[in-house]
Design a protein around this nucleic acid. Structure first.
Lengths: 242, 242
DNA sequence: AAGTGGTCTAGACCACGGA
DNA sequence: CCGTGGTCTAGACCACTTC
């Protein structure tokens, strides 16, 4: 591996590993070669491989089991990874997702700027419903540039049980990770109330997030409205205690 | 430094560094000795010191400036560190804090369990108001075990401009960091509406958090109610891209 | 016992920022 | 220029899991 590049070595190793994952060299939950073997393969030391893997573990691309190996992590959806816990605490429950609609729209000024597109650029607008045990608790609207995700078929989304993050990965090779997240409290309007099967003016937790790819480029904009009467939202903890 | 301890070496170094900070060896925004000097002092290698400092940087105890040094970070309050941004994005604004009240109460069953105390244990209940440019946008109630923070004087809190986290640090040597955080959307009740100088039934972002010390022990329980009509809440990002 | 992640060293060099 | 953080190596040993 060349030392001439502008990036540090472990960054290059990281990209090589990502490329290998993209190429399907190791399946989900399949173990990678050991750190020492990867070191030989890339012509670097074990410490450098480790630093690269550290970063991928922090981004939940990989996970490790001491004494066993390093494994490729699944791509659960962002909302599926956040825990929904009762206000008192304990028993986090994971929701399931149902696809509502998937249509093509134009970006408009604000979204174009956020996603770095032209104003007339085409976007997929995907609406999904979140359920916990049959109960509807959330509505999410995602916006994806058509240029990066050319053919989003509803059938395909349904096949993956509504998991758009997995679809972006499997069909378009884009591994998304969280960028910024913003929280607000809003009142349900008529549209939200109807889709969430609740009342107008119910308080909803609004979650606005920008997902980026592994080069940090903005990729997906999303807004979610969550009912939190019975279940509070708890964001996933990446890289817990060091 | 002994190799016999159950903990890895870099953990011991981390504790030594924390102890030195607690002892006031280096002031806020003052630079620590270089990594190589610290390595000599603790009798370990530079790489080990670095790993310890990495963890403290991730927890925002220290910050680094390449080519310059490693510095002790300030202890801004949790809410002061979260950004308040306009829904459209950009211009994050930091709020100031005003102390409302500070009284002693009994823990009760739930809080006792969360904080690992007896049910009759005494707690300080501190209420604070958050302002952005004169406008009241938040109300926070914190609960601190009296055993750990024996004398919480209102005067002292005011001296530190309402920054309870700094007080816990300066007066009691407890450096707090975020544990779990949970989000909900609720409607303002009469009490909240009065204190926030707004209307009943305004949607409020409710933020429930548990702060822990550096050994991971629960220390402070807090609930905040935030108005997010004009400003969204954006949690602080620790350890961004690796 | 063998193989994995996890830690640690001693020494080296690079990239950056301030004098 | 020097001193700082930031990276990297080759080799070693430990702790854990599995066989």
């Amino acid at each position: 591996m060349s030392k001439l590049a502008a990036q540090p070595l472990y960054r290059q190793v990281l990209r090589e590993v990502m490329a290998a994952i993209e190429a399907g060299e190791w399946d989900e939950d399949e173990s990678l070669p050991s750190e020492t073997d990867l070191a030989k393969r890339f012509g670097v030391s074990q410490g450098t491989v480790r630093k690269a893997l550290d970063a991928l573990v922090a981004d939940a691309v990989l996970y490790r089991r001491q004494g066993v190996g390093t494994f490729v992590a699944g791509t659960s959806d962002f909302l599926l990874r956040g825990l929904f816990t009762t206000p008192a605490g304990a028993d986090g429950v994971k929701p399931s997702v149902e696809l509502l609609s998937c249509v093509k729209i134009h970006a408009g000024e604000q979204l174009a700027e956020i996603l770095g597109l032209r104003r007339a650029a085409a976007l997929w607008q995907v609406r999904r419903l979140l359920r916990v045990g049959g109960q509807v608790i959330g509505l999410e609207e995602m916006l994806l540039p058509e240029a990066n995700f050319p053919s989003l078929e509803m059938r395909r989304i349904r096949e993956l049980k509504g998991n758009l993050r997995e679809l972006c990965w499997r069909d378009f090779g884009v591994r998304l990770k969280d960028g910024q997240v913003r929280y607000r409290a809003v009142l349900a309007g008529q549209t939200e109330a109807r889709l969430l099967m609740t009342d107008v003016n119910e308080p909803l937790l609004q979650l606005v997030r920008l997902a980026v790819d592994f080069e940090g480029r903005p990729q997906v904009w999303s807004v979610a409205w969550l009912r939190t009467e019975e279940l509070a939202f708890e964001p996933p903890v990446l890289s817990p205690q060091v």
